[in-house]
Simulated scan of single mutants.
Amino acid sequence: MTFSTKSVRTAVFISGTVLITLLATCAQASGYPVTVQSCNRQVTFDHAPKAAVSNDVNLTEMMLALGLQDHMVGFTGVSGWKTLDPSLRNGIRQLPELSPKYPTKEVLLGANADFYFAGWNYGMRVGGGVTPETLAPLGIKVYELTESCIHIMHKPKVSMNDMYVDLLNLGRIFNVEARAQKLVNGYKKELATFQATLTPLKKTPKVFVYDSGEEQPFTAGRYAMPTALIEAAGGKNIVDDVQKSWTQIGWEPVIARNPDVIVIVNYGDVTAQQKIQFLKSNPAFSDITAVKKNHFVVLQYVEATPGPRNIEAIKKLAKAFRNDAS
């Protein structure tokens, strides 16, 4: 049997058309491409990342909560800040820490990363060497932590929705949308159920977040996650009017605004107890209500930053606010 050149070309054309159609159908069936909003950018994914890297303990826990370990090649920015939580080590199994603090482009390239989950001041700095713009030519796509977007754009005041949005977007990026939606729905239900059981407070407690620093305190302003946690627990951040995220301020406004409760963020070289002792031993703070009455509540770093521990953090704060009110 013989075939004409024309018939062979026709067969090849038809086969190619069928293959393209099949590939398009498969892509559509898998849910790709997907486009998500990341701060002021839209990022499109043609497939789920296969070599993801997360920065910081809270962002890594978001990945673990969604069961994305098999899509990861490592994490960064945990041991250098001493924020490791024992349960994280169990969750990440054999995944390596690629860099103790912020990674360089070379670190990410060395891991053959195709995705970087980080945030502004959570693994990236404005004008730094590792940003969505510097990583794009290397084939590494970036999704930015929503809470951190305030560093490069205007955004609404921080809320629990910032964390929920990140989980849902990660669900879309990695094609585990149903899993992400179930997780978020569970968090929302757990929080609503807990809040419904709370005894109403006679007075809204004034709360100060003490992260670190002796000459000037590093604290959480209007756009940092503790503000949302404090409000969900029934309190008010005394520096809610500071139009920043995590930031440094002076001690004068802290003394003048006289917090009823001080939240200590525990991580790093200085322990929570050492921070409390500093506040209690300094005569300048002796008239602060929280110091006089020993009204301190300790949150681990991973609880105070956006991530799966936020609901437990709210419960801890709510209990402390009510104990302090009694």
Rank of each mutant, 00 (worst) to 15 (best):
K315S: 07
V263L: 06
G307E: 11
A284C: 01
V263K: 03
M153Q: 15
S281A: 13
L23E: 02
R172Y: 00
G235W: 08
F208S: 01
Y32V: 05
N55C: 14
V18P: 01
V43A: 04
G74L: 00
A118W: 02
S286L: 01
I249V: 14
A284Y: 09
S87T: 13
S286E: 07
R179C: 00
R172A: 11
N175D: 14
L19D: 00
Y187D: 13
K236F: 05
A318T: 04
A220N: 09
A48W: 04
E61R: 12
G91V: 05
K50D: 06
S99A: 15
Y210A: 03
L109V: 11
M62V: 10
D114P: 10
L135N: 11
K50W: 00
G268Q: 09
W81P: 00
L145T: 07
N58C: 09
D46I: 01
V242D: 01
G128A: 12
Q216H: 14
F321L: 14
L279M: 09
Y223E: 05
Q273S: 12
S54G: 13
G67K: 06
N112H: 15
N282Y: 03
K157A: 14
V73D: 02
A233Q: 08
L109E: 06
R309K: 15
Q94D: 15
F194N: 07
E133T: 11
P226M: 10
C39N: 06
A232N: 08
R89T: 12
R222A: 15
V107D: 15
A48L: 06
L84E: 15
P308D: 06
Y223T: 12
V298S: 09
T199K: 14
S30R: 14
G139S: 11
T289N: 08
N40A: 13
V209T: 15
V158P: 06
V57T: 15
T17K: 00
V158S: 12
V297L: 10
D114Y: 05
T247S: 07
F194Q: 10
Y122I: 09
Q216V: 04
Y267G: 04
K206C: 01
R322Y: 12
G139N: 13
F45D: 10
I230M: 11
A228W: 07
N323M: 05
